[in-house]
Design a protein around this nucleic acid. Structure first.
Lengths: 153, 153
DNA sequence: TATTGTTATACTCTATAACTATA
DNA sequence: TATAGTTATAGAGTATAACAATA
């Protein structure tokens, strides 16, 4: 028999989301970054990313992303690099400063989340990650479907 | 033996947080609310809440909350009610309009999250909620501890 | 024509500091 | 003095619409 959770399922998800946001805020502040800049830098630690992909990853309109990148560029954290094959497009990459701070921020976020989950045994953690993976997949499928439907209307 | 998750644990948490934020954004838009207003209204569906509690629940500085409540009040969604015992304090409650929209928004968010989790069997869902509950408890304990430490420094 | 990204504009959101009113 | 909340200010974040450059 499964133990009843203390929190309703959806409330748990909402509060977890709050917690993650808060972690980005706290870690960002340690490095004088806004939460959004911290997320941007963490994403770019994996390597340069095009504006289109960034827009999708962060769920931002392209104009909003332009502004976010503008401010990060003005602070010397990222740089725009024109795509040689498609001269309309550009990739965003970390500067030396941005890389240093981005790596620290990424470690800070991961470390803090790991530490909060410290009580969970590894198999529970895997279970959680797998379950979340399923939810994300469901969302991706749903998004693709609605996009397809909209396209055909 | 436990199946290895596709996503690293912390990445799963971060992406889940994104997803929840996006859900608030989408649901809010359906009712002409900003994501923050949607969260505020969803919180108030449970009954009036004082500014202090709201500030803690939303992780907002009191001045930021003042502005959020100002705009919601200006749009006729919430009302400030003075506390009769402590005349400095006030409670925020939903207006008739705010209640109508708040209930719809709350149902929209819960429904969408439930639907995304539709693939998960109930026991997995309970497990997820329980695991998240543990993480939240760890964070609460940590916050209380750091607050206590800061107070003594 | 369609796509990639920017600019212009108008809000909303947020924090810090200083303030008012009440306890 | 301490606490609950507001106001003033400044900057960041966001979306919509119109635009430029390239495909």
């Amino acid at each position: 028999m499964t133990k009843e959770p203390v929190l309703p399922f959806t409330d748990a998800l909402v509060r977890l989301a709050h917690l993650v946001q808060q972690v980005f805020g706290e870690v960002g502040r340690e490095h004088d970054l806004t939460p959004q800049q911290a997320q941007l830098l963490c994403l770019l630690v994996g390597g340069p990313v095009g504006m289109g992909d960034l827009s999708r990853a962060l769920h931002l309109e392209k104009s909003s992303l332009s502004g976010l990148v503008d401010r990060a560029e003005k602070r010397g954290l990222v740089a725009r690099v024109r795509d040689s094959r498609d001269r309309r497009a550009c990739h965003i990459e970390l500067t030396a400063d941005g890389t240093r701070i981005g790596v620290l921020a990424h470690q800070g976020v991961a470390g803090r989340l790991e530490s909060l989950a410290g009580e969970l045994p590894q198999d529970q953690r895997d279970l959680l990650a797998t379950a979340i993976g399923g939810i994300l997949a469901a969302h991706t499928a749903h998004t693709a479907h609605t996009a397809h439907t909209a396209q055909n209307s």
